[in-house]
C-alpha cells in the first residue's frame, strides 16, 4: 500500500522528492519547532500537556521520517503507518484535552456531551458491526480505511463538542479556541482526503500527497497565530443570584416557549 505521509506527505512511487514536497515538509517542521519553542518558553505545555506532547511526537516523527525517506526508502511505508496510528492515539488524548478545557467548568454541558457522545458511538458501532455482519460493508481492509474510520469517530466527538459549546454559548479563550478549531480542521480534512483516497483509489493519490500536508501546514499556521500571545480563559461566571432549581427553570422556559408558539398560532388563525 502506498502511504501518503501523515504530516509532510511525499509520494512513494519514487524515492525522489519533488521540490514543493520538500518545502511543505520543511515548513511543517519549522512551524512545529516554532510552536514547541513557544510552548517551552511560556510554559504552556503545563496548561495543554497533551497538545504539546502531540506536537513533540509529530515533530520527532517528521524528522525521523525524513531521514528514513532520504536514506532508507524501502522502510518508509511500514514505518509510516506505525507512526500514523501512534499519532492517532495521541490525537485522541488531544481531543479529550479539548473537551476538558472547553467543558471543564460546565458540569451540566459536560454531562450532555458525554451522553451524546456515548449515544453517537453506540449508533456508529452498532451500524458498522451490523453492516459487517450482513456482509454489506467489508471490515476495513486497509490502513487508509481504518484510519479514516477512527478519524471519523474523532470528528463525531468534535461535532458534539462544537454543537454544545455553540448552543450553550460557552465562552472559550483565544488559545483554546485556536487549538480546538485547528485540530477540528485537521480531523475534518483528514476524513475528507482519506475518504476520497479510499473511494477513488489511485486516481486521487496525486491530489492526496499534496492536499494532506497542505492542510496540515495550514493548521500549523493557525495554531501558531492562535498561540502567539497568551490570552487567559474567560473569567468564570458567578453563580446566579438566586440558586434556582433546574426543574423550575426548565418549567419557566417551557412556559415561555409555549407562549411564543401560542402567539404565532394566533397570528395564523383568527
Amino acid at each position: 500500500m502506498k502511504p501518503s505521509s501523515f504530516h509532510a506527505t511525499i509520494s512513494v512511487n519514487s524515492g525522489k522528492m519533488k521540490p514543493y514536497e520538500l518545502f511543505l515538509w520543511l515548513a511543517c517542521v519549522a512551524l512545529e519547532s516554532l510552536l514547541l519553542v513557544r510552548g517551552w518558553v511560556s510554559e504552556w505545555f503545563r496548561k495543554y500537556p497533551f497538545f504539546f506532547l502531540y506536537l513533540a511526537c509529530v515533530f520527532i516523527q517528521d524528522i525521523f521520517f525524513l531521514m528514513i525517506y532520504l536514506f532508507h526508502f524501502k522502510y518508509y511505508a511500514p514505518i509510516y503507518w506505525y507512526g500514523e496510528f501512534f499519532s492517532l492515539v495521541i490525537g485522541c488524548c488531544v481531543a479529550w484535552e479539548i473537551f476538558r478545557l472547553v467543558l471543564g467548568r460546565y458540569p451540566g454541558a459536560g454531562r450532555m456531551a458525554r451522553n451524546m457522545l456515548l449515544f453517537a458511538l453506540i449508533m456508529v458501532l452498532t451500524k458498522s458491526l451490523g453492516d459487517v455482519w450482513n456482509g454489506s460493508v467489508p471490515w476495513p481492509g486497509t490502513a487508509i480505511e481504518l484510519e479514516r474510520n477512527l478519524r471519523a469517530i474523532q470528528a463525531l466527538s468534535l461535532i458534539v463538542l462544537a454543537s454544545l459549546s455553540a448552543y450553550y454559548e460557552i465562552p472559550i479563550g483565544r488559545n483554546v479556541k485556536g487549538i480546538f478549531i485547528g485540530y477540528g480542521l485537521f480531523v475534518a480534512t483528514s476524513v475528507m482526503t482519506l475518504t476520497l483516497r479510499a473511494s477513488l483509489g489511485e486516481t486521487f493519490q496525486a491530489a492526496w500527497v499534496f492536499l494532506q500536508p497542505f492542510c496540515y501546514a495550514a493548521v500549523l499556521s493557525l495554531w501558531s497565530a492562535a498561540l502567539w500571545r497568551y490570552e487567559g480563559a474567560p473569567l468564570p461566571e458567578g453563580q446566579p443570584k438566586i440558586e434556582e432549581d433546574y426543574q423550575s427553570v426548565a418549567r419557566v422556559t417551557r412556559k415561555g416557549l409555549h407562549q411564543a408558539r401560542a402567539f404565532l398560532g394566533k397570528a395564523m388563525r383568527p
Partner: peptide, 27 residues
C-alpha cells in the same frame, strides 16, 4: 415572537449550563 423565544431559551441556557442536575432528554 422570535425574541420572546430567544429570551426564554437564553435564560434557560444561562442557568442550566452550570447545573449538575441537567437532564439531557428535557434539554
Amino acid at each position: 415572537i422570535r425574541s420572546l423565544a430567544k429570551i426564554a431559551i437564553r435564560i434557560h441556557i444561562a442557568h442550566s449550563r452550570k447545573s449538575a442536575e441537567l437532564r439531557p432528554v428535557l434539554e
